[in-house]
């Protein structure tokens, strides 16, 4: 049994985007804060810290989850992926990222990393979704800038819905 007292810092290690990393943290440290401020992966954003906006979405063992509702301790020993993992070497954008650029699916870009991480998970399980299914998954995110039209266009193109 892993047990840590409240004021104690312990070393939490996990695999972040393919690399083993670790840092010290109290049990209450949120995964979103741990990734951003302890491990320096600032691509994951924080928009509400109560699980509604989806900005903080990352993957744990391939599954998209809200990192603001996850303790760093819960990700201990797990495989965590963030938006920084998506582009290829030399920064080449992947298909989904390219579709986002082409269809102007982002303005401020604050919501975008979470959306990309949700769909990277969802599309790996459902490579040929319907438009309705895309909309359903996107409804787990708030974007204040775009009105969602560009995002839907990008998603549809990425999965081959014309």
């Amino acid at each position: 049994m892993r047990r840590v007292n409240k004021d104690e810092k312990s070393r939490i290690s996990l695999t972040l985007n393919g690399r083993k990393m670790a840092a010290e943290a109290e049990p209450r440290m949120l995964l979103s804060d741990f990734l951003r401020h302890s491990l320096g992966a600032t691509g994951t954003h924080v928009g509400c810290e109560h699980g509604v906006c989806g900005c903080c979405t990352v993957q744990i063992d391939g599954t998209a989850v809200r990192s603001c509702l996850t303790l760093a301790m819960q990700a201990e020993g797990r495989d965590v992926k963030t938006v920084e993992s998506l582009a290829g070497p030399n920064g080449r954008l992947n298909t989904l990222q390219q579709a986002f650029q082409k269809h102007h699916a982002l303005q401020c870009g604050f919501c975008t990393p979470g959306i990309l991480m949700s769909f990277t998970d969802f599309l790996s399980r459902n490579p040929k979704p319907t438009e309705e299914e895309l909309r359903e998954v996107l409804s787990g995110h708030i974007c204040r800038c775009t009105g969602y039209a560009g995002i839907m266009a990008a998603l549809k193109e990425a999965v081959g819905i014309s």
Partner: peptide
């Protein structure tokens, strides 16, 4: 602006 923002490099 997009490539950086899409890659977590904002």
């Amino acid at each position: 602006e997009d490539p950086a923002l899409l890659s977590g490099r904002g």
